[in-house]
Simulated assay, not measured.
Amino acid sequence: MSMFKRGGGRSSDAPGVTGPARIARPGAEVTAGVRAGDVAVINRPDLDGDDAAELVKLRVAAVINVAPSTTGSFPSVGPEMLAEAGIPLVDQVGDGVVTRLRSGDLVRVHEGKIFRDGVLVASGISRDGAQAAADYSEASSDLTTRLDTMAVNASDHLRREHAMLLDGVRVPRLTTRLKGRAVIVVSDSFDAAADLKSLKRFVLDRDPVLVGAGKGADLILAAGYKPDVVVGGVDGFSAAVLDRSREVVVTTASGQIQTPERLEKHQKDVVRFVADGEDADLAILLADANGASVIVHAGAAPTLSEFLGQSPGLVGPAFVVRLRSAAKLVDAKVVGHLTTGRITLWPIAFLVLSGLVALGVALSLTSAGGDVTGWVSDQFGDLVSWIEGLRS
């Protein structure tokens, strides 16, 4: 076991593992700033194998996880990997440890307790190899059960709704043109607002059809856009959405529209979508059946664990819809990653300036140079504005 003192002092005789605490910033890699012998303080529910492997490679002294390293919703191999490497793991210490410790503080970890200068600052659950293996086995069994349930629900949903799912029966045709166009479906779930923000460049470049699924339409408005189509129950639409959306699709299992007076008040003609299901699933199905070339989902479950962690009755139909639209459907995080790369301006600026210098020299040697100087100056100003526009 590692024993460290700040400044290279003598080792402590107190039991446990001692080292400088290194706190991972929210959203950063668990190994950011971490060195051998550090006590890594992380916040990773369901610690995965990749993060654990990096911590093992760095030879950290111990790992303190603010969150549960195994929630039970998904088999996490991270705790077992740490145990096999002989690295102590203290689980579920809570967010308070981040406020009570600073990176660089010398801490001692012993039997699930964290001490600084001999004072207990936090405590959690110590995960040894046997406990990690038991947690993994239990989570694996639970995952198998959920997968079986999803398969049964998906099969039942496909059997009942095969005409709509396979042939598009009862899926309405919209007046808004979707055929051959990119569509962004925004649902009010997971990281939808952040997803939509990451699509700013994609929206500017592609002019996609913006479809709000239920409360997702409010996120479109909050981002400064106008929903082209909104899909959901009448009661799920805010007054602002009804005022500003171009086309309203009301989903109803019975065919009857509840509180139609709200639509009359906003003078909205509506399209009925007689179907039962989640707003996001029906919006994706609607976009697919209306010929969208690509469907970007903002607010999709970021991991398989979170997708399967939803209500068992919803996961099966959601899986079927995504299976049908698989050739077109893509997560907003992927699109955002591909379209937010910044353009490096130095090569462009260098080429432009080189060309202008050459042009200037040529003009200075001709009698027409004076007549053209003003025009060149104007064009240069326009060019600078264009380059600056590339940075937005």
Rank of each mutant, 00 (worst) to 15 (best):
T303Q: 01
K113P: 03
I125E: 09
E306V: 01
G214P: 10
Q258H: 14
L165G: 00
L263K: 12
S238K: 00
L323S: 05
S73Y: 11
A40I: 11
A283Q: 03
A362K: 13
V121Y: 09
S354C: 14
G124I: 02
P68M: 13
D91G: 00
S155G: 15
S198K: 04
I387S: 04
A326F: 14
A326E: 14
V93T: 10
E138Q: 11
L143S: 02
V320A: 06
R262S: 01
E54Y: 02
P15C: 08
P79A: 12
D191I: 10
G118M: 12
G369A: 01
H266M: 07
D382R: 11
A134F: 08
L47D: 06
T373S: 11
T175D: 14
N65E: 02
V211L: 13
G336L: 05
A134S: 14
S254D: 14
V320N: 04
H266C: 04
D218F: 10
R6S: 13
A213D: 03
R25L: 15
E264H: 11
G224V: 03
G255F: 04
H157F: 15
D51W: 10
L286I: 04
P26Q: 07
A253H: 08
L353G: 10
R44N: 08
G104K: 03
R206Q: 13
L390H: 06
A193T: 02
L178R: 01
V274K: 05
V169K: 10
V372P: 09
G180H: 13
T252N: 05
